[in-house]
Each structure stands twice: as structure tokens, then as C-alpha cells.
Design a protein around this nucleic acid. Structure first.
Lengths: 242, 242
DNA sequence: CGCACCTTTGAATGAGATCAAAGATGGTGG
DNA sequence: CCACCATCTTTGATCTCATTCAAAGGTGCG
């Protein structure tokens, strides 16, 4: 089995053999985490970044009052710990939502990769920029839209991103988040998340059964909650491969 | 006068002559924008990125209901239009808050720079990651903290970032934002921003006179509103210069 | 079977929005 | 130089969405 990162990048462009080799060399281990385990703790000084091979995780920051804000869900193929490139102290906590398998790699190996393969560096920059845009969308959603739309937008994002990794069948996916966690992601209380979920069900927009969620009218939901898909990125401008 | 970008990057590391030359070649023009002018419009397909030479700008996204969420203020040395690296359609609007001078450059020149100077690519990736962290902080602030803290945190961020570019003297800076704009940045109404500003004044945390703001007890303000400075970034891991 | 944890529901409270209107301020043209 | 108009700030009253507090069902796991 090749590099997890190579698989992800292949979604966006055709890697050269040389690029693929470098990516393979980047990852020689696989580490496993249990549901609930903390992979990186806020203010710690992690030595490694990770690529998600399987499972759900999320990054979050602790709030003054004891709560937390979940920033982003991490699925198979996502890079964990990019902030380590800018800060020695991690600004965020990363924890496993489900059991998860991760591929760790050191910062110096990342530096070597960047030096050897400018196109990969540029692509990862693109992905970071896209993630920033997704974060911006969520900022807008949380800052200025009613609770129902926030919950709906989160479901849209999960659906769109899971589809990329084959986690959606028939517009239906397993949602292993508690309502508490959904609240931490959307800036709502668990109680209110519950009410909004039921509202969405009553309105015929979604359907739920034992942990699975189905988007009954995804197009309408997307429109009503103002969701924007940020999974597809531009690669035309990238420098040539090596 | 050399490249605006070179000046900014020099804050974080010592550029090689070769790097400096490439950066200089990147910028041969300077363009001026009036207060209120739109530099990049959401959904447009801009051909250029910019470096801010002088003035304040901000990026924002339009909300469904006619409002907008201001994402980030842009000061001298900031890069504008990075999303263009990931998307052909701009996900955000960039507008001038004050009269501003910008240095435009094309995406292909950026690609050439990245190919030639991996260290610069890595540094810009670092800066993008730091910006993402700052956005995350704001997300947490807007999602879960009371209005007073949101306004206070914005003032802290402005102060910290302006200090980098020499825009703060004696803990005092010119604030050219209307309360409407502060509201769009913090997810509050202009009316409520006004009340919170007065509260901060009454509490002796800030002082205002004709457009200037002074942070009277910056340390206390930072603690109370949970502000985290993201201006300093890690550069130890970067690959060697060329 | 029993204990944790999660979901659901109800009632009361509150932070911030909305609506409305009165001062300030500053730029513009006469 | 001044008057006027547009924009911005300030203040008050009311309303609403989400929070908080409380407690009753479910569900799965050890």
C-alpha cells in the first residue's frame, strides 16, 4: 500500500513517478488511535504531522469558559498538524472521533519533499488555501446565520467531503458525532442542535436512523443553508513536475 | 524601492540575494485604489494577486440575507488573492478601507517563484497556515464568546498586526473602520458594537479620540478577551535558500 | 442487568437583534 | 467661510432566538 498523501494528491493531479517515490518514502509507519484519543494536544510541541488513513478526527481549540470550538473534521487523506509548519506550539487539539489509523511523518522530511518537488509544495499550498476558504465559510455561517442553517451547512460539508473518500452511499452516511460535538462545531448547545435536527427532519430535508443521516433533498438543503463546496481545487497554474 | 513582498518576508528570515532578485522581478507595477474601491469581487475570476504596499483593506464574503462577514483585514505587506491559487472564482471580495497602493502580479509568475525558490514557497505556506490559525481564533471568538470579548479581540488583533508594520505608536493607532464594519467583522450589529465600545471605554480598557484608539491596559484586555498573537511564525524547519 | 452516555422535551432567562430617532462629524459646493 | 447633506455614532424600547436549567426516555456496553 502506497503513501496516504499520494492517494489524496492524486485526486487533484497525476503524480510523476519521481513524486510518487518521494511521497512513499515520506511514510513508513502507521499508528492507531482509539475513539476519543488525543493525537495532538493544544500547546504541546508535536514532532510529527500525520495523514489520515482511516477514521474521523477533528481539530478544536479550547475556549476560556471550558467549552471548545471544533474547527474542522478530518477524513481519510487529510493532513493533520499543518499548523506545526508555522508554530512550534500547536494552536489546536486534534482528537479521534472514531477509531483511526494515521501515517506520521516529521517536519524535516516535509522540508525535503518541498525542496525536491516544488509542484507538490504548490499543491499543498493550494489545499491549505482551500481549507482556509472552507473555514471562512464556516465563520460566516456561525457569525451570521440562524441555528438551523448552521447545522444544515455542517451536514452538507460532511456529505460533500465524505463523498470524496467514498463514505457516502445513496446520499446516506454514518454520522458518528454526538449532538454535543455538532454543537461545538456550530457554536450551539447540544439541546439546540437537537431541536434543529428534528426541525430538519420534520421539514423533510433529512432522515435519520441509527446513526445514519440521509440528505433527502440535498440541492434544496444546499441552497437554503448557503453551503459552498470547496473540495475541488484549481491546479492549472502549478509548476511542472520533477 | 524593492519588492513589497520581500520586505514582508524579511520580517521572518534573511533573504538570499538570489531570492531577493526574484521577488523584485515579481513586482514591476503599483496600482492605487480609493477608499471603498473593490479590488477583487466575489465570483469574479481575477488574473492577479497583490501585495499591499500601503493602506487598509479587507476580505469579506456576502451572506444570504444581504449582510456580509469580514474575514480578515489586510495591511502593508499582506498578500491579497491567495485563494486564486486554489480557485478560479474568487470566494471572497476584497475592498479598500482606506486609500491603498497595491503591487499586482500574475499567478504564473508566482508559479515560477515557487519552482525557483522552494524556501520562499515553504515560507508562504507557513504564512498561509498562520493566517488559517488566526481565522480559527476568530471563528472561536465569534462562535462562543460574548460581544464585548469579540470587539476587544478584534482591537487586539489590529494592534498586534499594525505593530508589525509600524502603525502603532504609544499603544495608539488610527482605526478607520466604521462601527458597521466592525460589526461585519465580529458578527454583531453596528448598534451593539457601539454599546460594547462604550463599555470597554467605561471599564478603562480603551480610550478613543477622533478616530484613534489606545489600548490602556493591553495585557488585561488580551487576557480578558482570550486573544492569541499569530504574527510570529516558525522558520527553523525551512529548506535551505537558493 | 445496570450504569454511562446520549437524546429528547419543557419552561424560564437573557444576550443581542431590531426598530426608531436624535446628535456628531466631515466633506462639498455655493 | 459657511451651510447643507450624507454618513456615522449614540441612545432608548421592544422583541426573539438561543441558552440555561431541569428531568425524563433511549441505547449500548461491560
Amino acid at each position: 500500500m502506497g503513501s496516504c498523501l499520494a492517494e489524496r494528491l492524486s485526486d487533484h493531479l497525476r503524480l510523476s513517478q519521481s513524486e510518487r517515490d518521494s511521497l512513499d518514502r515520506l511514510e513508513e509507519q502507521e499508528r492507531h488511535f482509539r475513539r476519543g484519543a488525543v493525537v495532538i494536544r493544544e500547546h504541546d510541541r508535536p514532532r510529527e504531522l500525520f495523514i489520515v488513513r482511516s477514521g474521523w478526527l477533528h481539530s478544536s481549540v479550547a475556549l476560556g469558559n471550558g467549552g471548545r470550538q471544533i474547527m474542522r473534521l478530518k477524513f481519510a487523506g487529510d493532513i493533520i498538524g499543518l499548523p506545526l509548519l508555522a508554530f512550534t506550539e500547536s494552536p489546536e487539539t486534534v482528537a479521534a472521533v472514531t477509531d483511526a489509523a494515521l501515517c506520521p511523518f516529521g517536519r524535516e522530511r516535509f522540508a525535503a519533499l518541498v525542496a525536491e518537488h516544488p509542484r507538490i509544495a504548490a499543491l499543498i499550498l493550494s489545499l491549505a488555501v482551500a481549507e482556509r476558504a472552507a473555514l471562512a465559510d464556516r465563520l460566516a455561517s456561525i457569525g451570521r446565520t440562524p441555528a438551523r442553517a448552521r447545522v444544515g451547512a455542517l451536514l452538507c460539508e460532511i456529505s460533500a467531503r465524505l463523498r470524496q473518500t467514498g463514505g457516502v452511499e445513496d446520499d446516506r452516511f454514518l454520522l458518528p458525532l454526538t449532538q454535543e460535538e455538532i454543537g461545538d462545531a456550530t457554536g450551539l448547545t447540544a439541546v439546540h442542535v437537537n431541536r434543529m435536527m428534528r426541525t430538519l427532519v420534520e421539514e423533510g430535508l433529512i432522515e435519520r436512523q441509527n446513526g445514519y443521516v440521509r440528505l433527502l433533498d440535498e440541492q434544496r438543503l444546499i441552497t437554503e443553508v448557503n453551503y459552498v463546496d470547496r473540495t475541488a481545487i484549481e491546479t492549472g497554474w502549478l509548476p511542472p513536475p520533477r
